[in-house]
Design a protein around this nucleic acid. Structure first.
Lengths: 221, 221
DNA sequence: ATCAATATACCCCATTTATGGTATGCCCCC
DNA sequence: GGGGGCATACCATAAATGGGGTATATTGAT
């Protein structure tokens, strides 16, 4: 994640999307007194935000997720369609896996949980602008759980080392013959392992096996 | 990630693994004056740590990654083999994707970058014990980049909507016939799309296509 | 000492894929 | 109004795969 100061506007054009009026105004006040960015608009609804995104160049979107007329991820998606270099920072009370993952997938690079200790908004914005990802620790846990240690908690039957090797080979598109040569075994033995893999993964063919194994964290792509 | 106070020892048994003597001692001193945990041992090498893990019950591992005789992820793996409920918190200067992902995969739930502002060790430990994931923002960016918005930054040639649909079907193991029925098109048309997919992804068969597409973020598994 | 799991090897055959063509209708953009 | 990209459809054939057997050697655990 290179940062090129020449293409990076030193003063960020900020769009704020937050339906709670007191909070929105609080954020707006904080931003008003901050030289690092300019608040383009403060919106209370998704509709307003989508309209505003069409009218103004926005570098940074600060957004809530649960909105009266839709979901903040829509604003994130629209932002990144219009300007792939723009960043989105989520500020939400929602912390369930699905919501968090959807926001990250939509393109959010930061995610602050709206709770407890007052949010260090400007600090987080600076982090984002510097190419880092400020994320509340509860939210980070979702990502860690999602990415991490699936090898320790395999969902179904475990694959033997040999099977894992072969599975990796399959994922890379090797044919039976190539796998046999690669592993220095008979081209007759390869399908045996593969059949066992299919049984364990409840798959019926190569691509489904790759899909299943990847979903279960047995291989990393 | 439920937290059950009854099975959670209120006083964490902590193993510290850090090869840099001054830092190790600094951490040890911090832990010594902290009622929330007990420092079982402070190790300087992977070997010592692996031995210590065999001898003592450890709830929390604080570890560096680059060690004179190996990699801290090995200690994490060993820890989690012995006690799947134990947590690992990485403290390292390393921030490259591969290192970070390997540590998370090994089972680390927190990752503090050893830099700049003095590490808030106790705060981070408390976060970990509370089931959260303290992660430095530079490190979090690695996770976000890995999980997020690849659809916005497709690496190679883009797939058409139809191709994407078919690719998803392939990943799920559908045959040509099933795909044709699913999409209500001729079973003759399916291979045409698939050929185009192969060309765009530089793949030669189904599993390689799934592998490539997943790596490029064109599909999410 | 035995059993279970793993890895190895071979055979057969129906089904599925991969690859090469050619061709038409649609829609959008310049 | 023509060009480009997309989706559609068909044909033919060689290669690869999937599923069914059976069998042996090794190894680690009981």
């Amino acid at each position: 994640m290179e940062h090129n100061p020449s293409t990076q506007d030193p003063v960020a054009q900020i769009l704020l999307l937050e339906d709670d009026a007191p909070l929105r105004e609080r954020f707006a006040r904080i931003l008003a007194g901050w030289p690092g960015g300019r608040l383009v608009t403060a919106c209370a609804t998704l509709g307003e935000a989508l309209a505003a995104l069409g009218k103004h160049k926005v570098d940074l979107l600060l957004t809530d997720l649960r909105l009266p007329d839709g979901h903040g991820t829509e604003a994130i998606r629209q932002l990144r369609r219009l300007n792939p270099n723009a960043d989105a920072l989520v500020i939400s009370v929602l912390a369930d896996d699905e919501t968090v993952l959807e926001a990250i997938e939509a393109g959010a690079v930061g995610y602050l949980l709206k709770d407890a200790d007052s949010i260090e908004l400007l600090e987080a914005i600076e982090e984002v602008r510097a190419g880092r990802s400020p994320i509340s620790s509860s939210i980070a846990r979702v990502l860690v759980r999602r990415m991490g240690a699936p090898a320790q908690n395999p969902t179904g039957p475990a694959l033997t080392p040999r099977e894992t090797e072969i599975l990796r080979g399959i994922a890379k598109g090797f044919t039976y013959a190539e796998l046999a040569e690669w592993l220095n075994i008979s081209h007759q033995t390869v399908p045996v392992h593969i059949k066992n893999i299919y049984r364990k993964l409840a798959a019926n063919n190569r691509s489904e096996a790759v899909y299943e194994a990847s979903k279960r964290g047995l291989i990393r792509l």
